[in-house]
Amino acid sequence: MTIKNRLKQAYKQAPWRLHTQKGVLFLIAAILGASILWIMVTVSVEASSAGLEIQYLNRLRDEYERGNASKVTEIARLSSAARLAERAKELGFVRATSSQISYVYVDGYTGRIAKITAQPPGADLPPVLIRPEYTVSLSEWLMKEIVKLNEQSLGVSP
């Protein structure tokens, strides 16, 4: 072994070390790639699931609202004036006349109070139901941002 060869050996890695380094680098790149892919897929799946759930909940809400309205109407139909009169007659009730009624003075009684079963005000929900990061996939977001930047540089109005 000459002096030249010995000097070369002093700073050059052994071939097995180089192979190991390359292998590790490749693994890191592969793991990074897989991680990005995994994140993209996860975000995409979450976005889809959230969207589908919202669609389902909307349908459910509409269904309940329709059902409630139908039930209110059905109750009204079952307790309609004609039906109640018919039912009272069946049960043997007769129409009272003024002379048959005993009136009692009740101090502070203000009379019959109306009960209106009107719908309550609309729920004051926050305007955004789903976080923006869940509404687009990573690739879509990236492309949108690039297009936006491009449009801005070209002076395209939004």
């Binding site: 889809s48 969207g51 919202i54 669609q55 139901l129 789903i130 509404t135 996939s137």
Partner: peptide
Amino acid sequence: DPHLMNEAQS
């Protein structure tokens, strides 16, 4: 497209 669900639709 469930991705495009937004608050307006809800």
